[in-house]
Write a protein that binds this DNA or RNA. Structure first.
Lengths: 210, 210
DNA sequence: CACCTGTGTGGCAGTTACTGTCACATGGCA
DNA sequence: TGCCATGTGACAGTAACTGCCACACAGGTG
């Protein structure tokens, strides 16, 4: 078992001819979208793999060549946002304080979301109410600490696996998740970024006394 | 769905006659122990519910009256340590710096473990290598933030659901998990407490610049 | 004592997630 | 044209879970 450090793409193989790769990627996205639509409509349990496969016109067996388990669909459903976040973060100037950079990256990553904030809220609700998704999603966040730590390390030429960077990444991960979750659960009006800002601001002050 | 805030016991019902409750609790523990033994011996996938039920001489159907899913066994396997941790933490003097208190509580909770550090290490390895367990375990840690935040709030008469306390609890949760995991993965000699101390020390300094 | 009622248990049938295996299709290449 | 590689589908099998019903064994009531 080596998935301690993840990469964002699912590099099972060498890059492939390049055309087939695109097509495979495309089917993967189609599957995730079809699944999402069905989950929102009927719920997770009431949607079978057969349903999802049928919606994309592939055989159920083939579904499993794209996703190892039904739960893993949730990762694909959130992947676009996640990639945007990391891309945005890496594009930020290294001199900028980390808090600000993260804040801005969250803003950008979620930006396409809040014209339809309801969609995003549905997504969060789906995760909250679907135990299998919830666990998988949290695990994903947990793992992405390593990715985040690497980015942080990159801004300062630090050690990607150093304890300090891991802790910072962990705290930020927790902060973002806590913030977004409160937003999804409570607030009807303001944008999630408001919550994230509040949490990150809190983080930038010393958390613990001596 | 309401499990946002957890209690440590599984309060499905009113306290029950009290005798039946003990017996039920006992069976639950027996199941968790039998399952653990089988998992260590053959692995998670190679152990069926039927095996576990047979080891405790109950019917497979009855197993599901104790645990909703096979994965949930991992929570029961770790529950004793978790309860010790919280008990120890609450017993600490409120004046004591939080870092020290947590450190000491981890020490106490894991103490029975390191005469047989190998057992604990096996447990961590099982979690690491069993995707279903891993996700469930991380989720549990994630949820226990709320419990920890409540305890922290109790030491200072703060708000158990206040953002600040949630963030502190989150950071500590991450720190402990990161520390224990590194210990389990790498170190053969020293005790996990050493890793935890290092992480907590780091946490007690400001994590993020302004 | 018989009678009910509530609670834990077991057996059975059914659904669905997932897997191993094999056969077939397609497309580039010699 | 034949050959191989890679993606796909069909089929059978295992095992996790669920709903349902029937039974056992309390404790309280007539």
């Amino acid at each position: 078992m080596e998935p301690v450090v993840h990469t964002l793409e699912k590099t099972d193989k060498a890059p492939l001819p390049g055309l087939a790769a695109k097509k495979k990627q495309r089917t993967r996205i189609l599957l995730a979208e079809a699944a999402a639509a069905l989950f929102y409509e009927r719920g997770y349990d009431a949607t079978t793999i057969d349903d999802i496969a049928a919606a994309v016109e592939i055989s159920p067996r083939t579904f499993y060549r794209y996703f190892p388990t039904k739960e893993d669909l949730v990762v694909a459903m959130g992947q676009t946002s996640l990639e945007s976040f990391f891309a945005a973060l890496e594009a930020r100037p290294p001199a900028e304080p980390l808090t600000i950079a993260v804040q801005a990256a969250v803003d950008e990553a979620l930006a396409p979301g809040w014209e339809d904030a309801d969609g995003f809220r549905s997504f969060m609700a789906l995760i909250r109410d679907t135990p299998a998704f919830r666990a998988r999603w949290v695990e994903e966040a947990f793992d992405n600490r390593y990715l985040l730590a690497a980015v942080i390390a990159g801004r300062t030429d630090g050690d990607p696996l150093g304890l300090r960077n891991l802790l910072i990444a962990g705290a930020i991960t927790m902060a973002i998740n806590t913030a977004v979750q409160s937003w999804a659960d409570q607030d009807i009006e303001s944008r999630p970024a408001v919550y994230v800002r509040r949490a990150l601001t809190e983080l930038s002050m010393p958390l613990l006394g001596p």
